[in-house]
Design a protein around this nucleic acid. Sequence first.
DNA 1: CAAACTCTGTAACTTAGAGCACACTTTGCC
DNA 2: GGCAAAGTGTGCTCTAAGTTACAGAGTTTG
Lengths: 246, 246
Amino acid sequence: MSTLATPVANLQVAPSDKLHDLLADYPDLLEQADTHCWAMLETAKLHTFDANTVMFSENMECKHLMLVVEGTVRVFKDSDEGREMTLYRVEPGELCIHNLNNLVNGMPYPIMAQAETSVRGLVISRSEFHNTMSKSDGFRNYVLRSLTERLANMVNLVSGLAFDRLDLRIACWLQTQFERNCGRPIAITHSDLGHELGTTREMVSRILKDFEHKRCIKLSRGSIHLNCKHTLKLVSQGKGKRTSRG
Amino acid sequence: MSTLATPVANLQVAPSDKLHDLLADYPDLLEQADTHCWAMLETAKLHTFDANTVMFSENMECKHLMLVVEGTVRVFKDSDEGREMTLYRVEPGELCIHNLNNLVNGMPYPIMAQAETSVRGLVISRSEFHNTMSKSDGFRNYVLRSLTERLANMVNLVSGLAFDRLDLRIACWLQTQFERNCGRPIAITHSDLGHELGTTREMVSRILKDFEHKRCIKLSRGSIHLNCKHTLKLVSQGKGKRTSRG
DNA sequence: CAAACTCTGTAACTTAGAGCACACTTTGCC
DNA sequence: GGCAAAGTGTGCTCTAAGTTACAGAGTTTG
């Protein structure tokens, strides 16, 4: 997360007959896509970004909207003191929603977005976006949905930060990750997990160790293994306060 | 904030020739309103809510969208331990954006909204909303703007909670309030200010007292007076750590 | 294999914020 | 006036979280 590459964008035109293939696996959009929506996507250009590319940062202006086709983009906020906090991720089939602010309001936006993996995305021009928003019910609903979902997530972030203890937030994070991974180990360093949740490496280490003592998880270098999801659930529900540090 | 009245809604039909009058003072929407938008507003019904009415709460479903015409609605999240945190306010000329989540996604939403004053609002049906979204460029842009602006505010909330000390957050809050009020006193109790920022009455008291010692502000029962906006600015920029508590 | 680097563990300490307790003051009301 | 309620000030204590510092384990690379 700390090594930021310089922006790189290799431009290619997407062969129109491949659009369906590109989006085949992402039903969210497909369900709603109608002819207008497809027409817009036909005009889009397929860009490729290397892993770690900073896709936008602090006050960078952004005149396009991108639909991610492959890879993930991490959107985060960083502090002066070198801490970071992940706001959300943009995954295949999803829109870089924060571009919208720029696009709609013309306001700059003090957050960063960075490709976590190599990323391919369909870049849509501002005018095509507005045009399709007016014509395509499906696309409009899709965009509205994305926005309101992000908003809902953000509210959860806020309430976690305001009211929940760190161990609880970590436990919840682990829970959702293990769920996604079907219980398979999560590959992440303590430092990166700190950056996910806006805290420090040391706190993460301590709390994870505590969870290991409680036999929820098993730690190894660079990854976290699930030991007992039942115990983890208990911990994440706030039962069982953290044990003293000695 | 703690005394919650039971929901009350007095229904009246808005006389169509009064629409302009109702919205006259709120240029944000007016600027963008076109014939379709006005047509929708003509179908809307003017509801009145008493002060303190809970407009929606935890998992209440909400089938309509409301445009606030008079009064303000406070949208907040509350914790199990009796703390609260204001997420934002809906003021005249603005939409209750969180309804949208319900409307668009059909998802319930674990936050509360409460009329701070008596509130009048134009209630728009779901179908009219979608209909107008498709027809009116102005309305669509207005909605998109509102959403992205809220999202931007939410990001600021998150970063404040994650990275900033409480005294800083309070100082910033004071700053923006005084700016709105043109330097006139802010009427709020320490306890309510705690609910604004997701903290406790005691912390607010202590920190405000500290600011008073620094001569930024002057405290009196139920209100905060600006003393020197320059000093406050310095404090809110993080210069001058909080003095020790003795 | 040795050096360099990355990652983890953990002890000691500091600080921010919360919670409790209680005194005091202002306001409003009978 | 006198009582109740709401609001404020503040000391004390406790705990969550951050900070510093360092040791050691694992990994990579020359």
